[in-house]
Nucleic acid binder design. Structure first.
Lengths: 147, 147
DNA sequence: ATTATTTAGGACAAACAAGTCCTATTTGTA
DNA sequence: TACAAATAGGACTTGTTTGTCCTAAATAAT
């Protein structure tokens, strides 16, 4: 699994909120229900994203969460890093702590090349760019396939 | 983490055994010690690889494990699939079960492209091709960087 | 002021991955 | 035959991730 569950949920939340009207707070309970996610767990993910400055939150009635920046200013890499850390983009594929230029594991050179593709994907894609290809994609954020 | 610990250990074992003389069994305890891995856990990984036909094993004195095929005939993808299954090469990056051509998630098209690179890396690399660039790499299979 | 609504966050429970331990079973050698 | 060396595999422990529950704090509206 490339991303943790928490991270999958976080990315989906960011995409969902990008389709909500700007500068309006959406209750995270409503988001979790729309996305079919367990609220209590999802709420922690939202907290993490708020702490790292990707979401802003507001308590009380008519409060909720909202994107803290313009969706064109937020890359997937930022979301992933906020939740899963940087290991996906930095770590040896065999988990060898000493692996690097000086002491490469047998996969190092080729994996570095592949990892560049992975990094490029996450760095290049922004929340806005991912939503661009039509909002027919919005429904595809739900976990269960609908008929 | 791209690969599970079990899978990391399995790949390292395959590479290690590729550098051992052909048709000689090596005790898996010795392998685990050389690689700095916990034996009891490592032994299960070896079992899995033996069950899937990538290693052959022999009990008793002067027994052990050995590559079951020529290292040039074994791709990284086979090793990974034997231990972690195919999800790395097939699953939606957001974990959405309904994601596919008919109902793509916002990341689907771009991720499919990136995943092709990942698959190509694992499909193209064989145990033999990875060992080709010099046996100075053998030492780099150890977990602790040595001075 | 009181109340209802919402996030904040700690403490807990369940599920899974990682690692350990112990006892077969096989098999080469004395 | 007896013994030692090695894999086979079940049962268990530990640690991390995932998920749940409950209470506190903030805040808008009455």
């Amino acid at each position: 699994m490339i991303l943790s569950k928490a991270c999958e949920y976080g990315v989906r939340a960011m995409l969902y909120l990008a389709s909500a009207p700007r500068d309006t707070y959406v209750a995270s309970r409503a988001v979790s229900e729309d996305l079919g996610l367990p609220y209590s767990f999802f709420a922690k993910v939202v907290q993490t994203l708020a702490h790292s400055g990707l979401l802003s939150s507001q308590r009380g009635p008519s409060g909720g969460v909202a994107l803290a920046k313009d969706p064109s200013e937020v890359t997937l890499a930022e979301v992933v890093t906020a939740i899963d850390g940087e290991t996906l983009f930095t770590e040896c594929v065999l988990g060898l702590p000493g692996c690097g230029q000086e002491k490469p594991c047998p996969l190092h050179a080729q994996w570095t090349f592949t990892r560049t593709h992975i990094s490029a994907f996450f760095q290049t894609a922004t929340i806005a760019s991912l939503m661009e290809d039509g909002d027919y994609r919005l429904g595809s954020l739900f976990s269960a396939p609908e008929e």
